[in-house]
Design a protein around this nucleic acid. Sequence first.
DNA 1: TTTAACTTTCAATAAATTTTGAAAATTAAA
DNA 2: TTTAATTTTCAAAATTTATTGAAAGTTAAA
Lengths: 168, 168
Amino acid sequence: MKFTEAKAEFINQWGILGSQWGVNRTMAQVHALLLVASTPLSTDDVMEQLNISRGNANMNIRELIDWQLVQKTLIAGDRKEYFTAEKDIWKVATRIMYQRKKRELDPMVETLSKLADIEGDKKNADVKAFTETIANIQKFTGHAEKTLDTVIKAEENWFFSSFMKMIK
Amino acid sequence: MKFTEAKAEFINQWGILGSQWGVNRTMAQVHALLLVASTPLSTDDVMEQLNISRGNANMNIRELIDWQLVQKTLIAGDRKEYFTAEKDIWKVATRIMYQRKKRELDPMVETLSKLADIEGDKKNADVKAFTETIANIQKFTGHAEKTLDTVIKAEENWFFSSFMKMIK
DNA sequence: TTTAACTTTCAATAAATTTTGAAAATTAAA
DNA sequence: TTTAATTTTCAAAATTTATTGAAAGTTAAA
């Protein structure tokens, strides 16, 4: 397989994966493009390589920066903004975990605690089934939160991080 | 908060969570409805409680069965089909992991190995950057596959499963 | 300042996804 | 068998989500 072909295929697959996980396909493609880029890219580079409009490119690059997966880079003597992706895949993974935890798991935990104690007949089968399910999900999400925090913290810890690089 | 209100809120939130993870909102809502149901529900029950059409209800119930999150249940003397959701949240989680691994991670691993060795100048910076990123993602997905397999296998193992229930 | 390069916004449009509902297919009781 | 209940399918319609592109906003060089 040729380089150009392989690169296109990677961008395409990363886009598909993203959309299966509720991420805008184009955002995932921009991410893929920057992941394999050997130099920082400008908005125009992204527009050209992915055949997308300026607005679209801009929006998705901002979103990637918001997710802490992409950084602005300055190039001396150039007024344009350039962008680079975090290339350490373990960091990429923990950052995605962190963001999704913050945006999705945390609010769900919040909601569950509101739903946990409801008024009404505790002996009613429907009420009982509901309360039990909510309690079980609460227990589970509690474990998930702890686990994620541990994994995310581990990445921030230089010792563990180095250790991971050793065994990786 | 009243029971009816809480139930509606749970179904709603579960639907939102699903859509954030690339799952059809209605499929997640049907799942939520069955998760908190005290008895098996028929297609008509689902239609009525979620205000959706027969085709929609049917399609999403089938999909949930395909994901092994919902089962057909027979009720003696009734011709209709009834449905129940798996209520053990740990099982729910491992089944979702299993399905997503099979449908998304496994194909990605396949693709990556195709992209791993490309023709062309190994000294070219672009080629080098591409090859390195692919190799890193491969290493990462390799770990992810192993970890997921361990977690999924653990659920199938009666001893570990009982142990989990103890500490949960 | 002005000017021009560059970035951001957002209403209109396009594309993708979901939902409907009625017809076709299936199944089991009569 | 027939008949009627039930499930499935799928083209058309509705809804949701993503994209465009040009105007407005911003920034820094001249």
